[in-house]
């Protein structure tokens, strides 16, 4: 699986909807949905910065490395 985005957990913790976050970081809801469902191939530093700013977190809270063996389990 590789890099996993923990956006749904963070949104749940912050009591924020995807639509609200999309408006705050100025990214379309479609793109945020791609990010949330781990379909994105890359993330820009500017997007990461905006997400960390609005979610009040560190990049490490948003991104997680999942090894192939663990993801298969």
């Amino acid at each position: 699986m590789g890099i996993k985005i923990n956006l749904d957990h963070l949104l749940l913790d912050r009591q924020m909807t995807l639509t609200e976050l999309a408006e705050r970081v100025d990214v379309t809801i479609v793109n945020l949905s791609i990010l949330k469902t781990n379909k994105a191939k890359a993330i820009r530093f500017s997007t990461l910065e905006a997400l960390c700013r609005e979610l009040k977190c560190q990049p490490g809270d948003l991104l997680e490395f999942v090894s192939e063996v663990r993801s298969k389990k």
Partner: peptide, 8 residues
Amino acid sequence: DEDQSLTI
């Protein structure tokens, strides 16, 4: 193009 469109 796919990489570019899937870069958020």
